[in-house]
């Protein structure tokens, strides 16, 4: 699997993603600086976590206009899988590849801890190593992960099976107690209509090594490595 990880000024989890991809595929992803206008021919594009442009203005808003994003949008339209994690998810929303926005956490505080994550759909390139209903333990690390969209958009996402993950308790209950940041309908990650773009706030890349607490996120990278080998 050939993967490109886009680095924006202020990205800070690009190496975490590179490591996770290498653990599953044995291959090193290529880092691409945001000012590039072209992407190498790759099987997967990742927008990593961090604070692109310091989160100034609005999370992801400035990065969404980086030169590289035209090419990312073009490739996504051609069906190339695109994964956006945390700040990457925020950038995908700001660039219009995914609907909705990420607001400040309901607690008004940054949250770093493992959360329960329920797999909603396993019929995607990203989630096919999971079963629908699986409960994962994956870290979050964000101050603005509170997913918001209007009810019609939320209904469409749910109707089309585009909710990838929901926050839940450790026991798998999707309720207010398990909602880490106040997200609408506990949504933690969503697909685009073709399901080749996934945006999610939790960090599966930080749950790919048993030494670091959890391997709940590894099947996501294993699935990609297998399908895009």
């Amino acid at each position: 699997m050939k993967a490109a990880v886009v680095v924006f000024p202020g990205s800070n989890r690009e190496h975490d993603i590179v490591d996770a991809i290498e653990r599953s595929s044995g291959q090193k992803a290529q880092l691409v600086w945001h000012s590039e206008r072209d992407l190498p021919k790759v099987d997967l594009i990742v927008l990593p976590g961090g604070f692109s442009y310091g989160d100034y203005l609005r999370t992801g808003a400035i990065a969404a206009h980086s030169p590289i994003m035209s090419e990312v949008k073009k490739r996504a339209g051609q069906g190339v899988p695109v994964l956006g994690v945390c700040n990457g998810f925020q950038i995908l929303c700001e660039s219009g590849l995914l609907p909705g926005v990420l607001l400040t956490n309901a607690s008004l505080k940054f949250i770093c801890r493992n959360v329960g994550l329920k797999v909603e759909h396993s019929d995607s390139l990203f989630t096919r190593r999971y079963n629908a209903g699986d409960v994962l333990s994956v870290p979050v690390a964000h101050g603005m992960g509170n997913y918001f969209a209007d009810p019609k958009t939320l209904d469409t996402l749910e109707g089309e099976g585009r909710v990838a993950f929901r926050y839940c308790t450790a026991e798998g209950e999707v309720n207010a107690e398990g909602n880490a940041n106040g997200s609408a309908r506990n949504i933690a990650g969503i697909f685009n209509a073709k399901k080749n773009v996934l945006g999610m706030m939790p960090h599966p890349e930080n749950a790919t090594d048993p030494k670091l607490g959890s391997i709940s996120g590894k099947p996501l990278f294993d699935a990609l490595a297998e399908a895009l080998a």
Binding site: N12, R13, H15, D16, D19, A20, G49, K109, F110, I111, C112, P139, A141, H203, E205, N206, D209, L212
Partner: peptide, 8 residues
């Protein structure tokens, strides 16, 4: 409130 996991 501190990201204690970044860098993996």
């Amino acid at each position: 409130q501190y990201d204690h996991l970044v860098r993996g």
